Computed example of a mutant assay.
Amino acid sequence: MNGRLPGRVAVITGGASGIGEGTVRRFHAEGAKVVIADVQEAAGRALARELGADTVFVRTDVTREDEVAAAVDTAVDRFGRLDVMFNNAGIMGALGPIDRTRLDDADVTVAVNLRGVLCGMKHAARVMKPRRSGVIVSTSSPAALIGGVGAHVYSAVKAGVIGLSNSVAAELRPYGIRVNTIVPGAVVSAMTAEILADGAGDIDGAERALSRSAFMDRPLRPADVAAGVLYLASDDAAFVTGVVLPVDAGMTGAGGTSPFASGRYGEPAAMLGPRAAAGS
């Protein structure tokens, strides 16, 4: 069988759209069997029908532990095992100034973006530990690492995903289970379309909006993030655990514009300070 995940079985939460859908498609193309776990029934069922018998949709609200457990159990019952758990489901959640934050909104944000990841890890570990193998990948955000690029509660829970992942990586390493975090930049998706364009369905609008601020020659797309998740899930990353992998065109690691290599400094120069004066 061809591909980098031949015969592997994955559960992907939030798998009906955006990064999740892109990863479902890439995993399927690489030989994996995939459980699409999402609350978006129409989109999830349509994707499963399109991809065929090696893909199944399970309606999954990640704030409900029983539904996350059912998605994992479906992987085992339908395909015989679970090799990869991708905790990807997420919402932007609570917005607005900190002094006017609605705590009910904050509670939902935490429930989806952090508690949902915890549930995914718990039930993945439940079936992976006896087999002493597996991979868990969870989606964080640049907002976890730098201020001013995400909503307050979203930033906090995405930072929590990194802390949780690294802690669980230390526990599960002796069982041969690797646990890592993916950090996508702003990606062309329904979520960014809702924020930056004319609603969740305006993907072209999101593409245009993100093109104006892209760090590279085009905006980030779900397939780009899926490639990073694929690496972490594959045997190529056999000794990679407890890491945070940014797929963000350098937003978190090289966010500046290199001011001393352009403009008036476009030609080689030097500022040598008092040493130059003393030698003259």
Rank of each mutant, 00 (worst) to 15 (best):
H152R: 00
I195L: 14
G242Y: 08
I162C: 02
A29Y: 01
D235M: 01
A89Q: 06
P97S: 06
D77P: 00
P97T: 04
V127D: 13
V9K: 11
R212I: 00
L210V: 10
D54C: 04
G80F: 06
G242P: 05
N113L: 10
S211R: 05
T109H: 03
R81N: 13
K129I: 15
V183H: 01
T74N: 04
G31E: 07
R64P: 02
T74Y: 00
L245E: 09
T192N: 06
R264P: 13
A125D: 11
Y154K: 01
D235Q: 09
L232S: 13
F57E: 12
L220D: 02
G120R: 07
V58C: 10
A46M: 05
A223P: 01
E267G: 03
N87W: 03
S140Y: 03
V84Y: 10
S262L: 04
K129R: 15
G134L: 03
G147K: 04
I136K: 13
A10W: 07
I195A: 14
R4D: 03
A237M: 04
I182N: 07
S140I: 10
V187I: 13
A29W: 01
Y265D: 14
G201Q: 05
M251I: 02
G22V: 11
A169T: 05
R100A: 12
P268C: 05
D236N: 06
P274W: 05
A278C: 00
V247M: 04
I146D: 01
A32L: 06
I182E: 08
A75S: 12
V243Q: 15
V127R: 08
A169V: 04
A143F: 01
Y175W: 12
L220N: 12
V187H: 02
R26Q: 10
K122Y: 07
K158H: 02
G256Y: 01
G185E: 07
P130S: 12
A206H: 04
N180C: 09
D104F: 03
A278H: 12
G20L: 07
V117M: 06
Q40A: 15
A125C: 03
P246Q: 05
G163L: 04
D99C: 00
A227E: 15
A237K: 12
P222G: 09
G163M: 05
G263R: 02
A277I: 09
L245Q: 11
R131K: 14
R8I: 00
V168N: 06
G14P: 08
E207Y: 13
P222R: 12
F27W: 08
P97G: 05
L245T: 12
R275V: 11
L245K: 11
G263M: 06
A209W: 04
L230M: 08
R102P: 03
R49Y: 00
G228I: 07
V157E: 03
A277T: 14
A169Q: 10
V187G: 04
V243M: 10
A190C: 00
E21F: 03
M85L: 14
S234W: 09
I195P: 00
L47W: 08
E67Q: 15
L232C: 12
S211E: 15
N166M: 14
L51R: 10
D66V: 11
R115C: 03
C119S: 12
E267R: 13
A197V: 08
R81Q: 15
A261K: 04
P246S: 06
R45N: 08
